[in-house]
Amino acid sequence: MTLSAALGLGQTALELGLINSLTVLALFLSYSMLNVCDLSTDGCFTLGACVGAVVAISGHPWLALPAAMGAGVVSGFVTALLQTRMGVESLLAGIIVNTGLYSINIAVMGNSSLLNMNKTETVFTLSKALLKGTALAAQYKLLVALIAVVLVIVFLSLFLRTRLGLAIRATGNNPDMVRSSSINPAFTTTVGLCVANAFTALSGCLLAQSQKSVNIDIGTGMVTIALASLLIGGTFMGRGSIPKRAVGVVLGSFIFRLVYAIALRFDMPASMLKLVSSVIVIIAISGPYLKAQVPMLRRRLSHGREARGSEEARGTGKEVR
């Protein structure tokens, strides 16, 4: 592999990693902070992509971003409403919303499952034009994604330090405490999911604009991929301040994309991405659990050996008698 090819590989991984890291940051809020596994992520990602694409195609590439985020807020609100006010299990609420969003996404795209934005002005083409002739001209995609990620990290760092942010963290950290405190868990869960889904939708919107097309499957498996990135990031900056952990999460997303890009170089079929992300999530979650089992397993094995040993000893004793 030549150096330029390697650089190109790194840049693509960085771009995709940054765009996807917005979804990872969303899960950082909902999964790590609020302790809610939001399974509507896939649908919400697609929703953001669809809404963003439709608005961009109608000639408003910048407006596409807040529009997608707004759609994400609504989606998150419905998921939260189901689990806090209507007695639907948290996981089930996400699955139900995810299923419903499929139809909504098709409807948003005008009863089509594919939208092409080849001739559409996007935030990326606009910044490309803006950066023309400067040193950063080749990195226009990277720059847009980077700005979005930095803004989201700054927002999250500030937000999680407010009283509302602390209340959201407490809701995920000790539900028993929150139940008997002046925090209304229904409220904190709702706010947390609305904010998280806004980021997920923004992530989808940016991906659609960067690849200049949307199809209905753009978000499929997103929750697993993001979870894998989140867990990889957690191994780097597991404990630490919120901004540090948020940066770690973005790093995790980048590493995941890089490993994937390298695997593609070695002729791994592109369709393997989802299997790889599943395996990473399995390893990351079950790894610590299995590791904790090892000492007990060892003790049981040696216990078995000792028991057999003493039995044999007793056996020989009988023969002597």
């Binding site: 602390l166 963290r169 407490a170 950290n173 000790n174 028993d176 405490m177 008997s180």
Partner: peptide, 9 residues
């Protein structure tokens, strides 16, 4: 005593 405060904060 575990019910009154958030251990991770």
């Amino acid at each position: 005593p575990m019910l009154g405060s958030a251990p991770g904060m």
